[in-house]
């Protein structure tokens, strides 16, 4: 699978899960590796690519780190949108 396609699937999963459960990086990798039959390392790499450009972000709350879709505020602060 092309990285871009995999990343779109990751994003779709994140949107589906938004507000339901705080997802750890590992949860996302596991779910997408199952869904796409890609190796966990491949999913991890694709996920990291998204975090590096601000398509996804790390967050912290409830005593643990998680991965989230960034807020507009975050994107603005990082200069990714105006």
């Amino acid at each position: 699978m092309e990285t871009a396609e995999l990343q779109d699937k990751i994003f779709a999963y994140m949107e589906k899960m938004k507000g339901k459960k705080k997802l750890k990086e590992k949860d996302v990798i596991k779910a997408l590796a199952e869904e796409t039959s890609e190796a966990p390392d491949t999913v991890k790499k694709a996920l990291r690519g998204m975090i590096d450009v601000g398509r996804l972000m790390y967050s912290y709350g409830g005593g643990a780190s998680s991965v989230e879709i960034p807020s507009e505020e975050y994107l603005r602060e990082k200069g990714l949108i105006k």
Binding site: E25, I51, D52, V53, G54, Y58, S59, Y60, G61, G62, S65, K78
Partner: peptide
């Protein structure tokens, strides 16, 4: 506390 955790690409190093 919480929320903000870092700079672009990182998930740590900053404590909100």
């Amino acid at each position: 506390h919480g929320g903000i955790v870092g700079v672009l690409g990182y998930g740590g190093g900053v404590i909100g």
